[in-house]
Design a protein around this nucleic acid. Structure first.
Lengths: 192, 192
DNA sequence: TTAGTTAGTGACTGAACAGTCACAAATGGC
DNA sequence: GCCATTTGTGACTGTTCAGTCACTAACTAA
């Protein structure tokens, strides 16, 4: 912190701590998305990132710090995906832009992890630091969607509501349930 | 199981195992709703129900069996609340009935536990038994709403989507966040 | 070369917790 | 009275896991 290395970016031959931090966060998103905060040992993330558990504790402020970093990264990826989606809109009307973003969000389902981690984070909101991370994430998503679509509040609220419905569909695996009620729930959301 | 007691109902003076089971499940809903499946020790539920931990393990098939019972009970309460809400509808049109049920669901927010437990259960869907309990619960809710409202699939899907949005609002405590974006999310949902 | 810094780890500790078991006490039929 | 069943518990065990610490290895600047 006191002395900054000459180059702040990776030096090519050898990995810097910051490089490792980013690598580990990327793995943490994936690994935490499987079983959530409490049920995932830090050792699993360490193993996935091919570093020792001790090193993970060195780079992050405890398991909680690691999880919060993963959640922040997750929402950043979601916001980026939505922005990219809006760019693929056929027209410039708020409705079309929102539709394009909805499509982009449904595309995220293909890689369950970003959806699942959001659910796990929401579930762990009794931990203040996690609740704050969720609030930051929602805030950034709302900002991105508002900015990119120009839609009114009601339309944006509706967008978020159906996003949340996606979470339920993915977590409960309703695409694998061949019943009338499951079709009622995931109609139009079903992927592949 | 082999020999049924003369009276299957509670005998008045002394508590039967089945009475205790119900009492413990009721406490389990409340206690699990606070921190979820993994982060809640069975001992907490036992303490809340004022019985020993050993006895809880005797009455339920492990911690998982206890949690699944709690989730089943939770969805049963939700379904009952929705049915009661539909009965208070001003008219018989599907729209009015759905609105009445929405109101009833928002009323549930007052006691966070039924909402929170659903979120925790959705988060723990990687455990097959829990995922099945969630599917049963959603199924019963969809059936109740369909039956009571007579609304079409799209309207019911919308009902569920906004229900899920409630979960986010409650878990993240957005009512306590005084910002533009939070208002966008919880507009019309805000309670009290 | 050497002195200082940074990357990285193996081996441990202490606490929490799921689940068990032997046992006690109350109840009810005969 | 006496035996069988059921309710209920204290005390224990084995495991898992967050977090630490003493240490080594590599790089860097002089």
């Amino acid at each position: 912190m006191t002395t900054t290395p000459v180059a702040t970016q990776s030096r090519g031959t050898r990995s810097t701590a910051e490089d490792q931090r980013l690598r580990i966060v990327a793995r943490a998103v994936e690994i935490f998305s499987r079983s959530g905060y409490q049920a995932t040992p830090v050792a699993s993330v360490a193993a996935a990132a091919k570093v020792s558990t001790a090193y993970v504790f060195r780079l992050f402020d405890g398991k909680l710090g690691l999880f919060v970093s993963a959640v922040d990264d997750c929402y950043a990826q979601v916001a980026a995906a939505l922005t990219a989606g809006a760019g693929r809109s056929v027209s410039e009307t708020p409705t079309d832009r929102l539709d394009a973003m909805s499509l982009a969000y449904i595309e995220l389902i293909r890689d369950r992890s970003l959806i699942a981690l959001q659910v796990h984070a929401q579930s762990a909101c009794d931990v203040p630091e996690i609740r704050d991370a969720v609030r930051r994430g929602i805030s950034s998503v709302v900002h991105v969607v508002t900015q990119q679509s120009g839609a009114d509040d009601d339309a944006i609220q509706r967008f978020l509501a159906y996003g949340q419905l996606c979470h339920l569909v993915v977590q409960a695996g309703l695409a694998d349930v061949d019943t009338v009620w499951a079709r009622t729930v995931d109609h139009g959301i079903r992927h592949d």
